[in-house]
């Protein structure tokens, strides 16, 4: 029982990363109906920005200027990281997506993919191939609850991703901006006629999605403190899987699907030999989508697909 419970805790934590990344992914996806294949690499950029900000702030302390407590460094890192990564996201939108708004969606997906590769290699070319270690800002404490090991980082990550999920859901549903975003998801060509500044909204959406990626990146750095230029590539593809598994136009669904992906991956490894993990996990996803072709939480859109 504790054995199983331990796996549930593990799956929750791992799923929360998929959820966090899928959340940012689905932000762009459900509003602009764009595959944001640069998202995984924006996540990487966010993690690196977080790394540099936090190292810088910690250096301030060792240099004797101002010694900041670790929690403050973490908060500042998150705020600055979100802001800077949002700028990066807006840049990506401006360069790669805005010129292609009327093009087939898959073309925009390709520019995203290419921008992602540019980020990876640029990082490699500028910073070298060295792995970087994210400074531990949270003192890890392990709690034993009924034989199950839980660390404070795990709890924190799960809680934060749940909170962000809810906050984002409320934002999209309750605010005027959110309403504009949802409207854009329905028809991007009519919305400007209603006086919605579509360029601003698109940039905002990207900023928001990228800021979420930065949060994911920074917490990822806390939980898995080895950073390298290609860290976002595979995660980006998996976020794509989660976001779409959740269903079109459902931010909450995307996050839940992220958790589900985590659960599938972990429990397949538990029940079957772990070498077969990808084989079984992705066959399952293939089957799920075969029988639920609109994702888990998506509405069956009759709107014409722009592809």
């Amino acid at each position: 029982m504790t054995y199983l419970l331990q796996h549930v805790v593990n799956a929750l934590q791992w799923g929360s990363f998929y959820a966090l990344i899928a959340l940012g992914y689905s932000m762009v996806y459900s509003v602009l109906m764009l595959f944001n294949f640069a998202h995984g690499d924006i996540f990487m950029v966010g993690a690196y920005i977080g790394l540099f900000v936090s190292t810088g702030l910690l250096l301030l302390g060792t240099a004797g200027a101002v010694t900041l407590p670790n929690w403050l460094v973490l908060v500042l890192t998150i705020i600055l990281g979100m802001a800077l990564t949002a700028v990066v996201g807006m840049l990506v939108e401006r360069v790669g997506y805005r010129p292609l708004r009327k093009a087939p969606r898959a073309s925009a997906a390709l520019t995203g993919l290419m921008i992602g590769i540019t980020f990876q290699t640029l990082n490699l070319a500028l910073l070298g191939a060295k792995r970087r270690s994210f400074p531990a800002l949270i003192e890890t404490a392990t709690y034993q609850v009924a034989g199950v090991s839980i660390t404070n980082t795990k709890i924190m990550i799960v809680v934060i991703s749940l909170l962000l999920m809810l906050a984002l859901d409320q934002f999209v549903r309750r605010t005027k901006w959110g309403m504009a975003m949802r409207a854009m998801a329905v028809d991007i060509f009519v919305v400007p006629l209603m006086g919605v500044p579509i360029n601003t909204m698109a940039a905002l959406t990207f900023a928001l999605g990228s800021a979420l990626a930065a949060v994911a990146g920074i917490f990822f750095g806390q939980a898995y403190p080895v950073l390298e230029p290609y860290m976002g590539a595979l995660l980006g593809w998996k976020a794509f899987v989660a976001a779409i598994l959740g269903g079109r136009g459902s931010v909450l669904g995307a996050a839940l699907a992220g958790f589900m992906l985590g659960f599938i991956e972990i429990f397949v490894a538990v029940v079957f030999p772990s070498t077969l993990r990808d084989l079984i996990a992705y066959s399952a996803i293939l089957l799920i989508l075969t029988f639920r072709p609109y994702g888990l939480f998506g509405e069956p859109y009759s709107a014409r697909l722009r592809l």
Partner: peptide, 27 residues
């Protein structure tokens, strides 16, 4: 699956297919 799923959903199905094939040959 492409009879019913289209666009993005089919995209994920095909991606999952690639992962499955790769994992198959790894095993």
């Amino acid at each position: 699956p492409s009879f019913r799923a289209r666009g993005d959903y089919l995209g994920v199905i095909t991606l999952a297919f690639t992962f499955v094939v790769k994992s198959l040959f790894e095993n």
